[in-house]
Every structure is written in C-alpha cells, then in structure tokens.
C-alpha cells in the first residue's frame, strides 16, 4: 500500500484551508496519510493534523525552516520522503509549493502535476484535472512510471472534513544545514493584509471601465465590506493603474473564488481564461454587448459609478 505525504502549510498557529483540503483528500485514498510540517512553530499544529486524519506526522522543527529556501527545503524534504518511504506527495500550488516541488520532483526523478483542480485516487495511482491555457481547456492527467507521484493542488477546490486517525505516530527529523548557494536576505511585506487572489473566496475585479487609477477606491470600498480581494484586468495593469500581482488572466493569476464581481471589465478571452472557474460571476458594465456577460451568472447593464456605491451600501446591510 502506498503512503501519501501531505506538505501542510500553516499560519498563526493554524492549518491553512488548503492543508485541510489536502488531508481530507488523502484520507479518501485508503493509503497511509502522513503529514509533513516545517518550521519552529510546526509542533503547534500537530493536534489539528491529527483531527484531519494524519496517521504519521513528520516535523522539521529547526528554525532554519522558518524561512523558505529552495535548496534547503528540497534536500530536507527528499530526506523525509526517503525515510518515510512515501510514494506520493500532495501539496498546495502556493508560491512555496509551486517553487519547491518541481525541484523535489527532479531530484527524485519523478513526475509533477501542478496547479490541479480535481484529484481522484485509482489504485496506487492518482488522476487529476488541471486547467491548461489558464482554463480555456482542461486536461485529465495521471502518472506513468514515477517513483514518487507529486500533485500540487490549487486552494479552495476540495471539500474539508475532520476524521481523526485511530493513532498517530509523530517523528521529529533533524537535518544539518547543507552548503547553500541561495540566501534569503529579506522579506518585504506587502501593503495588503488581504488574502492573495489565488486564495480569496470573493474577488472584486476592475477594468478599463473605471477610467482612472483613483477610481479603484470604489472597488476597495466594496471589497472591504465583503472581505474580498481586489483584482484587475491586463489593460489596467499595463496602463500602470495596478500592480501585476493584481492581474487576473492568462498572463496574470488564475482564480476560482466563490464569487467574482467584474466591474468595468469587458471580458477579453485572456482575462476570462483566468476567472471562468469562479462559482458565481457578477458582471457590471455599461456595454450590454461586452463579452463578460456571456460568462456571467448575474449581470447589471449600467453605469458602474452609479451602481457600485449603491451595491456597497446594500452589501453593508446584509453583511452585518
């Protein structure tokens, strides 16, 4: 029987939702569920790992793991994979996951399927669905002969449920620092306290219809009421109104929130590719022929400068 090693990310002493999703999915495989957590605070989440069904917990508690370093993490994780004899790795397609696990895969001469939105276990193999061209098409994919099967899942795609394992074995691994050619000098914090677009449950996104950068304030006000993250179209990023980190689309971020509100966004094919996986899409645009309405669940044809402030007020009433 195989063993699935789940790389569990956490913040402020709690498992991230993505880690809960991965553990819940791993449990459905019928294989041994092993969780890996790293960093000096990793012991604080072991109770939560148990709740979600970890039969083995592997910790790299040394403070050197508090800061992501691709070379260090690759070496240490490959070491844990070998010691635990894991046959598969599940991790989140987060900044860290996407950077780290391809390198781990290469070192283990294994395959990696990144940015997946669905996964199914069939025998010892794993089948996934992953968007290609940012969602213009979907591929079902699986592993050929791969010593370790590595799957990186997008956040917010899978259900979450608790189900503690009958027993859990915890192992602390020590790892002496190898010679590193990479040094992280500094982390410059973002100005935003909001969730990243790729993790956000609600996104309010603006396009050229906003006419100028300052008018994004309308969207920020709306987003504040909803606890949403603000995104933008390529046109307004290229115009310099917003940073590239806010861009949704084929050359920006691919997102799939529960609710995506597109304000003054025409719906160019490369933008729609990045957001059409959203559960509910609201379009607000003064052009009834804008292609965004073909993707939207609900639409308001109207002047956004009139509609958005009223919408903000209306949400205030129900979000209390």
């Amino acid at each position: 029987m195989g063993k699935i090693l789940v790389f569990t990310e956490y913040s402020h002493g709690h498992l991230k939702r993505s880690a809960q999703e991965l553990l819940t999915a791993a449990r459905s495989s019928g294989q041994t569920v092993a969780a890996l957590a790293v960093g000096s605070q990793s012991a604080t989440i072991t109770e939560e790992l148990k709740k979600y069904g970890a039969q083995e917990i592997h910790l790299l508690k040394d403070a050197q793991f508090d800061q992501y370093n691709p070379e260090l993490f690759t070496a240490a994780i490959c070491d844990v994979v070998q010691k635990s004899q894991a046959t598969a790795i599940l991790a989140s397609a987060s900044s860290t996951g996407k950077d780290l696990f391809p390198r781990v895969g290469a070192r283990l001469n294994s395959g990696v399927l990144s940015d997946c939105t669905e996964l199914r276990f069939s025998g010892d193999n794993i089948e996934v669905t992953r968007p290609l061209f940012s969602g213009k098409c979907f591929a079902k994919a699986t592993f050929d002969i791969s010593p370790v099967k590595i799957v990186l899942m997008r956040a917010n795609q899978l259900p979450v449920s608790e189900s503690p394992a009958a027993s859990t074995q915890t192992t602390e691994h020590s790892f002496s620092k190898p010679d590193l050619k990479t040094v992280i000098k500094e982390i410059v914090r973002g100005t935003s306290e909001k969730l990243d677009l790729t993790e956000a449950n609600i996104i309010v996104s603006g396009g050229r219809g906003l006419k100028e950068a300052a008018n994004f304030k309308l969207l920020n006000d709306l987003a504040d009421v909803l606890g949403a993250t603000v995104g933008a179209s390529r046109a307004v990023v290229d115009a310099g109104w917003c940073s590239h980190g806010m861009q949704v689309g084929q050359t920006g971020k691919t997102v799939a929130p529960s609710l995506y509100i597109a304000v003054g966004v025409s719906g160019a094919i490369q933008h729609v590719a990045g957001m059409s996986g959203s559960k509910v899409i609201v379009a607000i645009n003064n052009d009834p022929n804008a292609p965004i309405f073909q993707k939207a669940t609900y639409g308001i044809v109207g002047d956004l400068f009139d509609v958005v402030p009223k919408l903000t007020e209306e949400f205030k009433k129900v979000m209390k």
Partner: peptide, 30 residues
Amino acid sequence: KTKTLSLSLPADKPAVKLLSGDSQQQVTAL
C-alpha cells in the same frame, strides 16, 4: 513521468440573468 489522458473544453455556462429596473432595484435584486 506523467501522461495526459484526455482534454475537454469547459462546460457552457447558462445564460446570464440580467437584472432589470433602476440601479437601486438592480442592486437590491442582485
């Protein structure tokens, strides 16, 4: 190490529900 089993296009979305009335009515309905 990996292989593609099949490709598919996203399912067609049902037609948009456009909200009618003045802007306040539209917003309330939405």
